[in-house]
Amino acid sequence: MTDLVIDVEGLVKHYGSTHALDGLDLRVEAGTIAGFLGPNGAGKSTTIRVLLGLHRATAGRARLFGRDPFADAVDLHRRLAYVPGDVTLWPRLTGGEIVDLLLGMRGVRSAPRREEMLQRFELDPTRRASTYSKGNRQKVALVAAFAADTDLLVLDEPTSGLDPLMEAQFQRCTQEAADRGTTVLLSSHILAEVQELCDTVTIVRAGRTVLAGRLDELRSVTRSRLVATIASGAEGLGEVEGVHDLEVDGDRVTCTIDDAVTAEVVAAVARLRPTALTVEPPSLEELFLRQYGSDVLDQGA
């Protein structure tokens, strides 16, 4: 049996008549980076608030390290670091003071990477929080999260407001943490970031999980996309087994192909002497949009 750090099943949360969560499932194994995707209002932050013991679930099961996140909040929080998507700070304290404050409240005695993280995120610790921009406020929470070892990182859209250089720095830090054995829950809108970092993804919509699994497995059940430039056209390609959605626009040929017959299809295309050929596995964006696209169609029907 695998070691589940986060184990959520059939989670329901109602705020009065609003159903924020409606049977959400989320499993994160120890040592993995889990992507948590969904549009605004899908219930990502609510799930995280339940996992942090801030909100109480209406029904369903939520376990963190096998324990009750509400009852055992303080003990559990010694093992995790949290970065919210919109970090608000104490305006009169300095960035350095707040980093130490957050570390201290987590029960961290020594933070070996504090100075390193301040440098890597280019954060001036002597400036007062009231003078920080949104990106700098995010950095304060990120520095505190990465400065000391932790068993779990809970990141709720952590890179909002960061520039591309800092975004890349964040990805490196997250990967390094994972290499040290830290489990990561990364809620994000930035699909490239999730695709780059995550081992598994969970896609939620309207308070429910609509797709979950290892990223490579999810990709394999979906067809790859083939794009070729063939002067002679796509003669006979439509009859090859495993080729779908064939479109020909002048010399530009596109189709989707089943993974199992990739070799045969490519060989068939090669016989047509293409001047350019790319075969790409489905991007996360395609997975994501396909999920929402079909739901939108379902609703329309």
């Binding site: 304290l93 300095t94 350095g96 980093v99 130490d100 201290g104 007062r128």
Partner: peptide, 15 residues
């Protein structure tokens, strides 16, 4: 502009 403050807060780690 407010001047720089302390770069650390070693004793702030409790409510």
């Amino acid at each position: 502009a407010p001047g720089p403050g302390r770069p650390d807060g070693p004793r702030l780690g409790a409510p």
